[in-house]
Design a protein around this nucleic acid. Structure first.
Lengths: 346, 346
DNA sequence: CGCCGGGGTTGACACGTTTCATCTCGGACG
DNA sequence: CGTCCGAGATGAAACGTGTCAACCCCGGCG
């Protein structure tokens, strides 16, 4: 039933230590013995028990990624980067989804601590997990923040400058002459949300009104609610441009407004964030802030492995990438040529 | 450093066994002692070592999900269902991504076997993993196939009738009068692809030509290549309808054809599969086969837990859900009213 | 012929739990 | 006053590894 190293040893007529050596230091054992042991392993269908291994070693050989929302393609793209680096380095990557739920995030961290994982890549829900992360670090489990900057000196972080991103988006809208601008996103406990919002504010030159439409989370469903709210406003006071904290929200806003007869971009311009693949394919191709998603995952994993392998000489670093505005139809410059509006013919 | 149960015991002035009892059978220990132990635990910041626990118990308390492609929203929706059930039952769910890569799938399974996980939910890449899965099952690790039927008697499966789905899609297109129909998808080692294709064939009444456009995988990028291929065909022989194995492929086809001036649905109708959220939000809202994604995840997880908890009296079952056609603009019935084609005015 | 060295192999221990038979002790009951 | 009982605590064993000092054997060298 539970075939252990012991049975392999008995079958091969060697000691336990020798079997262990065949598995871990094959060169230290005579080739004839090695063959015999390998044969026994094959015959018994022996599979190492990782629990015992880990117990003995004191640490696991897999790193954990705690994603904020797996349903958001942004995170699966980050993941791809992490998986590539992990593969190259021979470490396993297991994924956990917090789904923007604080309790779930905490539960996952509890488990990871009990598992003594090699390290944790996390996009935290809000600042309140910091002490929790400190605890992990004290226990010797390296933590790297992903898509979230940090001034803390006891960990690395890999992020994109969200304030800059917000400012770029804002400037774009201001340059188009928009004077009533909205920001749709939430919750404001997410650093991404507050930073992007702050950036947008910075871009305003004073002549613009800013209206904030808070959302419960960063999903398309929340975006639809925001879109409903916007569409219901009288046209005279309705913002003429909406900057969304995220592409999912932007797609939701776009969908709902279109359904309610508000035209994009003629009546309202929309700019999203992340430039997920679906942004370019949507009903009205979405302007968005592009982030080096895969790069983010790669860099974070590299930092994590570096820290895990050489804890002594590791210097914590905070990597910050730059976002880039991609303008598409949803915020195309307003002008007669791009508006096939029947009311204008003659 | 490594605070173990032993140090807690010493600090609280009790034996190791008592500490263990406080953790696992709190009612069996006098409340004053319990308090003392809990205090010591808090002071030392003790955290259980799961490896040791698992070693002793022989099995883990977490189930693993091996997803075919996390970048496909279909799977994240299935995951949501699994997570809900897992949460209700107090088991952890960790996620692995095979990314349609056989080697990665195998590596993940190897690790899961070594970890002695409680069970595995998997959407396998192709039939060749079957012996691998049998091995897991022999070792006492329950396996449930997700989104993939099975006639095997040693495991459960939860699937949607893909042949029916293909037939429904095909019938829809045939009824619209299409006579040159294409199927875009691949690789044909995926059961989903062969089944949906087979269903489509069944729907043909004989008067139609069927052209297969194989793709390397089921991503939007692969869809774009297929779209390119289709768009390059002379209009006289180009299929007037494309059934795609998956929404991602359909979105790729749609995007590329639109870019190359082939109009959807006027020149070519498109039907996808999965009805992911983005399907309704795309440039031309996509007709698609809807599947009970979350249900799929829920049912699979329930079966798995049932088997894990009562291996004896468990009867393997094969659950099959029915898909449902959702018609949107991409395959809307052709007719003058829906075609604002300038060449027709007068 | 005896000693030495080194490649191979061994066996015991430790890792941190959980479990379980055993022990202790104070109170209740005859 | 002796016996019994049960709640509560204990200590050892076991789970499957990896490690490491010790050991064995054999050939080479003095």
């Amino acid at each position: 039933m539970a075939t252990s190293i012991k049975e392999v040893a008995r079958r091969a007529g060697v000691s336990i230590g020798t079997v262990s050596n065949v598995l871990n230091h094959p060169d230290m054992v005579a080739s004839t013995t090695r063959q015999r042991v390998l044969k026994a392993i094959a015959e018994l269908g022996y599979v190492r028990n990782d629990s015992a291994r880990q117990l003995r070693a004191g640490r696991s050989r897999t790193i954990a990624v705690v994603a904020l929302d797996l349903a958001n393609p942004f995170f699966t793209d980050v993941l791809r980067g992490a998986e590539i680096v992990g593969e190259e380095s021979g470490v396993n990557i297991m994924i956990f989804n917090s789904g923007e739920d604080a309790a779930r995030e905490r539960r996952h961290l509890d488990v990871l601590e009990e598992q003594r994982v090699l390290g944790v890549l996390i996009t935290p829900l809000d600042g309140s997990v910091d002490p929790r992360l400190d605890q992990l670090i004290e226990r010797g489990i390296p933590v790297v923040l992903v898509d979230r900057g940090s001034g803390r000196h006891n960990r690395c972080s890999v992020a994109v400058d969200d304030v800059l991103g917000g400012r770029l988006a804002g400037t774009h809208l201001v340059e188009q002459g928009h004077e009533r601008i909205a920001f749709a996103g939430g919750p404001f406990t997410l650093a991404q949300v507050t930073d992007r919002h702050a950036g947008l504010r910075e871009a305003l030159t004073g002549g613009q009104q800013l209206r904030v439409i808070p959302t419960a989370n960063l999903t398309a469903a929340a975006g639809r609610l925001a879109g409903e709210h916007l569409a219901d406003l009288p046209a005279e006071i309705r913002p003429t441009a909406v900057f969304c904290a995220n592409d999912l929200v932007a797609l939701g806003v776009l969908q709902e407004m279109t359904m309610r007869g508000v035209r994009v971009p003629q009546d309202v311009a929309i700019v999203g964030y992340d430039d997920i693949d679906f942004a370019a394919a949507s009903a009205v191709p979405l302007s968005s802030m592009r982030q080096p998603r895969e790069q983010l995952g790669r860099a974070a994993t590299q930092l994590l492995l570096e820290e895990a392998n050489e804890p002594e000489q590791h210097q914590h670093r905070h990597v910050v990438f730059q976002p880039e505005l991609v303008v598409r139809e949803s915020s195309a410059p307003a002008g007669p040529s791009t508006r096939p509006d029947p009311s204008w013919s003659r």
